[in-house]
Design a binder for these strands. Structure first.
Ligand code: ZN
Length: 279
DNA sequence: ACAAAGCCCTGATAGC
DNA sequence: TGCTATCAGGGCTTTG
């Protein structure tokens, strides 16, 4: 699933191709529910003639900045992908939205499960309505260990659930949160309240480490994720615990366990991440 | 503030 | 083989 590293990789890919393109029309929109803000034909009208100025990532959203203060936004949820293609290139499976450009190229939004969403915002204020409640970006230089201490220290409840809450901190999904907890040696069943300052410090660095490594490896392809050109990432080859239940821990050899925390599959090493574990 | 469950979806997998 | 039930989960909503 696309988490921060996958979204960042895709944005960097698309940044090579999209800026300067002029939108011709929305040439496919066969699942209207995926377009959150407008009916397909209205979206097409509002986009026609606008030019792409640049791309940004915020949390797991891809934001395409357009002329006339318009913002085209994509969230890929579980199985969504964005591909830059020639209009006459072979079809991509599960394509549900296509933005066609005037030069014969197009942007394809594919999504097996149709959970992905497209938004068009007219003006920065509308955009901020979507992005306004999001927590800080963990990879910014301005995000310090002290910032992390301050957002985590007052929180209660389960640690892993908290780290997945995008209002607290953005970018982590199930894969990278499992990895970050392993790297920091913290059991996923720990409560946020139980952490010491030292453990929070380790967690801060672990989060940045696993996310940066994910970007260096161009994302984790377990089943569906592909980059802006349709290629797999490599991060799945070096995962410590995620999707590795019944396999040996790369550090100590203990069998990786799988439990459910916050209604999500949770992988950890019982030896490297000691703590309460009532399976 | 936090927890748990339901919703949206469909390919893969397990069970009979 | 062929059917049916279950599972995976990001973000949102509803209920407690
Ligand atoms: Zn271990």
């Amino acid at each position: 699933m696309p988490e921060l590293p996958e979204v960042e990789t895709t944005v960097r890919d698309l940044r090579q191709y999209l800026p300067g393109k002029t939108i011709d029309k929305v040439s496919l929109a066969d699942w209207p529910r995926m377009i959150q803000t407008h009916p397909p034909e209205i979206l097409s009208q509002l986009l026609a003639g606008e030019q792409i100025l640049g791309l940004e990532r915020r949390a797991k959203y891809i934001i395409v900045n357009l002329t006339n203060d318009k913002y085209l936004v994509f969230h890929r949820k579980m199985t969504g992908n964005l591909f830059f293609r020639q209009q006459d290139a072979p079809a991509d499976k599960y394509t549900h939205v296509v933005i066609a450009f005037t030069d014969g190229t197009e942007l394809r939004f594919t999504d097996l499960r149709k959970f992905g969403r497209v938004y068009l915002f007219l003006g920065k204020a509308e955009l901020d309505g979507l992005l306004g409640r999001l927590g800080p970006e963990p990879l910014l230089d301005s995000f310090t260990p002290q910032d992390f201490q301050e957002i985590m220290r007052p929180r209660k409840g389960n640690l892993k659930v908290l780290l997945l809450n995008q209002d607290v901190l953005v970018g982590l999904g199930n894969i990278y949160v499992n990895e970050a907890l392993f790297v920091s040696g913290l059991n996923p069943q720990r409560t946020a309240q139980s952490l010491t300052d030292g453990e929070r410090e380790k967690l801060y660095h672990a989060i940045r480490q696993v996310l940066n490594t994910g970007i260096e490896n161009r994302g984790t392809t377990l089943s569906d994720y592909l980059d802006g050109e349709g290629n797999k990432g490599r991060n799945q080859e070096i995962l410590f615990v995620h999707n590795r239940d019944k396999e040996p821990c790369r550090t100590c050899g203990t069998t990786i366990a799988k439990i459910v925390v916050g209604q999500r599959g949770t992988y950890y090493c019982p030896t490297c991440q000691p703590g309460e574990s009532s399976q």
